[in-house]
Design a protein around this nucleic acid. Structure first.
Length: 376
RNA sequence: GGACAGGUGGGUGAGUGGUUAAAGCCAACAGACUGUAAAUCUGUCCCUCCUUGCGAGGUACGAAGGUUCGAAUCCUUCCCUGUCCA
């Protein structure tokens, strides 16, 4: 059922266009996946996500949904799609990122991760197997294997030990997944392992090579954007993608700024996700075709123009910067909705433009234009 | 006219002799944010100067005077505000 169809590859850069066929619809790649950690993309309705933004796939989070409302509750309610009324594809992160972000609330052992709930302090033990079970209960289309997302910087030795553990977890998760899914007779779900290795090329290569025998439906590159310089993140992605099978989607987790998206795509990346468009929206930061617009700045107090003159989104077609600034300063929740709608539209439009460019063989031109625009 | 209460930096509001250029909150101004513990967090927020430092001066707690080594803090007079009584 789950299948990746590669449609075109840019001969000059290696950028790819394809289609991810999932049990909940097709996803055209390269794709940016809005983050909906707790069963909602913060600030916007499923209706707008579907009709207005026309997103084809979004993220959910295993750790957060496990804690609240609980994966069993969601299973009983018909799975995450039905629960949140999202008919299209969902990718769920395993909780590996929480190993990084909740570093004061967890303890990593060989068997898994002991989390102390950030909600009430309850201890919960996540294993490579249990996270697959939880994600199956959520009925996630693309599940992620439990990994250790390591903070930067890390010593080579620490990174080596961590990468080996991530590899063992990937194998354990996959073994479990294979057992469970053959028993269920379902091929609807996909499980992606994650290439780690901190910023060490040898570890990245080793990790990627060791994951190949899993013959996974897709491969992720994780552990980026954890505090390292941008150039390093790109370098790690660049050296990893050529090691991955061309007929499987590559997913770089947790990136990036708008100007970084083309850079990843140019390195053969098919899927990305990031909280930036949604979180920054709530913090008053708009991404536009002309750069950033920090709406709280005094210069927009009486600015009647839209946030982005060329943007076709609902927010830009209907509201002025002055009005949006007012909503932000007044703390009105409508602001978050309008801002998130715009920022996600911006991200999805960038991805759509890239896909078109790749399909018609003009991606190199697109990339050059993007780079030139970023420099000014 | 009388009795109380009170006048603090853009706003609120602590402080009731020295560690106070004066807490906290708000507003204002700027910054951060990258598989979401985020509708969050950080910085600046009297003026001037420089060797940019837990730097040096100057002004400042209604007004004027006084006590004191030292006052936003104590005393005197005046002005103003609120509540109540006539």
């Amino acid at each position: 059922m789950f299948r990746f169809e590669l449609q075109a590859t840019c001969p000059e850069t290696g950028a790819r266009a394809g289609i991810l066929h999932t049990a909940h619809g097709d996803v055209e790649t390269p794709v940016f996946m809005p983050v909906g950690t707790q069963g909602t993309v913060k600030g916007i309705l499923a209706r707008d996500l579907l009709n207005d933004l026309d997103a084809k796939i979004i993220l959910g989070n295993t750790y957060h949904l496990f804690l609240r409302p609980g994966h069993e509750a969601i299973r009983k309610l018909g799975g995450l799609h039905k629960f949140m009324n999202w008919p299209r594809a969902i990718l769920t992160d395993s909780g590996g990122f929480q190993v990084f972000s909740l570093d004061t609330l967890r303890k990593v052992t060989e068997e898994g991760v002991l989390f102390r709930s950030h909600l009430n302090g309850d201890p919960h033990f996540f294993t490579p197997e249990s996270t697959v079970d939880v994600q199956l209960a959520l009925d996630s289309d693309i599940m992620m294997v439990l990994d250790e997302c390591l903070a930067y910087p890390a010593s080579h030795e620490a990174a080596r030990v961590s990468t080996e553990r991530t590899l063992r977890w990937a194998r354990a998760g996959y073994d479990h997944y294979r057992r469970v899914s053959s028993a269920n007779g379902d091929g609807e779900h996909a499980l992606f392992p994650i290439v780690q290795g901190s910023m060490y090329p040898d570890l990245r290569r080793h990790c990627a090579e060791e994951l190949l025998p899993l013959d996974a439906e897709g491969y992720a590159i994780g552990g980026l954007s954890v505090g390292e310089p941008r150039a390093l993140s790109l370098e790690m992605a660049e050296l990893t993608t050529p090691l991955l099978p061309t007929d499987r989607p590559r997913y770089v987790m947790g990136v990036g700024m708008p100007d970084e998206l083309p850079e990843y795509v140019a390195r053969g990346v098919d899927m990305m996700d990031c909280v930036l468009p949604s979180r920054n929206a709530r913090n008053g930061y708009f991404f536009t075709s002309q750069g950033r617009v920090v709406i709280k700045q005094a210069q927009y107090k009486e600015d009647p123009s839209p946030v982005d003159e060329t943007c076709p989104c609902y927010t830009c077609r209907n509201f002025s910067r002055a009005y949006l600034r007012h909503l932000f300063l007044a703390g009105e929740m409508t602001f978050s909705t309008l801002a998130t709608l715009h920022n996600l539209r911006r991200y999805l439009d960038i991805m759509g433009q890239m896909r078109e460019a790749i399909l018609v063989g003009e991606f190199p031109t697109f990339l050059r234009a993007q780079r030139a625009a970023t420099l000014t």
